[in-house]
Amino acid sequence: MPHRDKPTVVRPFQFFRAGAQSAANDDRPILVLDDVTKYFDADQPTLRGLNLTVQRGEFAFITGPSGAGKSTLLQLIYRKHTVDQGRILFAGRDIARLTDRSIPFLRRNLGIVFQDFKVVEHWTVFENVAIALEILSMPRRLVRSRVSEALERVGLSGRGRERTENLSGGEKQRVAVARAIVTEPALILADEPTGNLDPHLAIDILTLFEEINETGATVLFATHDHSLIAKREHRLISIVDGRVVEAQSGLSSWPGQRNKNNSGLHAVAG
């Protein structure tokens, strides 16, 4: 090993830095949504007075029928959109008040995974993962070791040189997950990450997120796949009529079915 100090990654907003070890923040929830309202349409708010608290290290499913606002909720957290009313506290800081210039620094503390992967097809697997670290101006040598570590965690070790377009859907999603976790963010947002995958691959990806969760990251996993939800005992956050309706994953006492008479999960999870 070279006798050099390990280079440290400087993040402009240390405040946003992850770290379950960070004692000062230990008891504070990582995410608080307080009376959040979002309109896309003036007379039909997508989210209306939504309240939600997520503790550090939690794994939560976000569900609800199509168009309920699952994606919108996540988009508000990574500041693709701004709330119309209310506050979103991420690590105690109101992200609705961030200036546009600060948004990148918020996102550096998040790992985001999408249904359509959002990997760059003509880049190699390595490049797709490394970009997240290059944005942090991390030295090349460190980038290499961190990327291969991340690829190993998602089961793609040794495949960094392959062009991403040659990968299968499940593998592409693993690349996206590796990119999301390589910066060791405090919060992972996954918007239907299994939506384009067949059922057994979906379980694989879900398991991957659970493993990531075990290392300390908080995971919000949006999905309307009830078979996936039914297999796990995670906190279940259901969005109905623009508000949160919570249920523990037992499914016998499913909340939020008050306006539909067909019972069970299908009514809510679409």
Binding site: Y78, R101, P104, F105, L106, R107, R108, N109, L110, I112, K118, V119, V120, E121, W123, N128, I131, A132, I135, L136, R179, T183
Partner: peptide, 16 residues
């Protein structure tokens, strides 16, 4: 477009 979107989501600044 695709890579620009990816970089923005990973927290790239406009300058980057």
């Amino acid at each position: 477009r695709q890579e620009i979107e990816v970089m923005k989501l990973c927290g790239a600044t406009d300058g980057f």
